[in-house]
Design a protein around this nucleic acid. Structure first.
Lengths: 186, 186
DNA sequence: CAAGTCCTATCTAACAGTTGGTAGGACGGG
DNA sequence: CCCGTCCTACCAACTGTTAGATAGGACTTG
């Protein structure tokens, strides 16, 4: 139960943070979920800030992997772009949770610096992937990164709004709307 | 100092909530900002939930007024639509704050029911106004409300992302991108 | 007018619970 | 025996909330 516990802590913390944010993280609840006492978590993470940063880092690393998997599995960049919002949909499917980094973007003022860094990395990873897909799909454009940022922001916003209604349908409708307007290539 | 104190409390709570969310609200800090002790706030609001609901309600009421003022001042609905993101920009201008209700949308799981209601009212007010402008601008369409929701979500997302970089420029760029893609009428 | 009564707005003081974090010991496997 | 892992027990800070007191003004009443 060495690396096992660490993994379990990270996983429990991620799930909690996706529903209640960084501020909603607390050692006792995480411990209870893992089957460990709160104080024991300090054996794996020296502080809450470190745990938060570790969670956020793992989060964007997993996102990066998922994006790579998506683009290699689908091949066609336009179709990969169409599948992109599905990743955000999955968080909503998991008990109406939201993207960890969107939540933390809201909490930005109260985040320890190391956590802020990881949150930004998540956005960077997404924008970079989107820009690559856009470039591959339309064969050009220095504005690819700008467009990528717009797609990222819009999808994050759709998730936020849909969450406040606990409605997957609303999320789907919003994405369709983005597609019809031309924000996301069709 | 009767209604005066109540006003001051609401104002301080709004400013705090726009930066730290509902969870970031606490009676002692609000009291200190107003120049009153925490316990005295209970003379004006029976509980934190009530204060939160009052703040959120006033927030969307003010938003509704601002939207009316915008559309009557500008006249042309297309130009009013173009000016819409400016309202969200203003929050960022005020010390990188964000829309109260976007923040609370993230905190949705932890919100008392009366607060949830007011948060949704804010979204409704925005969508209704946007739908009206869209209908007036393009003379038609039952999908106006759908489009309105998409614009609302995208602008909220842009604000969220821009906040996490503390960058007004980023916000402006995102809005321009929405306009160029056709999401917001040009 | 004076005295008594009430209301409003605020205070001090404390409560019970929760938080992040620390100190020091128990215990099992190599 | 010692090291990795976990524990119990605690602390100080902070939370929402309550109880009870106080100061001052307004109203009523003798």
């Amino acid at each position: 139960m060495s690396e096992n516990a660490r993994e379990a802590i990270l996983e429990a913390a991620r799930r909690t943070a996706q529903a209640h944010g960084y501020g909603g993280l607390n050692f006792r609840d995480i411990g209870a979920e893992v089957g460990i006492k709160a104080a024991s978590i300090y054996h794996h993470f020296p502080s809450k800030a470190d745990l938060g940063a570790a969670v956020a880092k793992r989060y964007w690393e997993n996102a990066a992997e998922a994006l790579e998997a998506l683009s290699t599995a689908i091949g066609d960049p336009t179709k990969a772009l169409q599948a992109y919002p599905g990743l955000f949909r999955r968080s909503l499917e998991e008990d109406n949770r939201m993207c960890l980094c969107s939540f933390m973007a809201a909490e930005y003022d109260d985040l320890p610096d190391p956590v802020k860094t990881e949150v930004q990395a998540f956005a960077d990873v997404n924008v970079a992937w989107l820009a690559r897909m856009l470039a591959a799909a339309s064969g050009s454009g220095s504005e690819c990164e700008t467009k990528a940022r717009a797609i990222f922001a819009a999808v994050a916003g759709a998730q936020l709004i849909a969450r406040s209604r606990a409605s997957l349908d609303l999320f789907d409708t919003l994405i369709v709307s983005f597609r019809e307007s031309g924000l996301i290539p069709a």
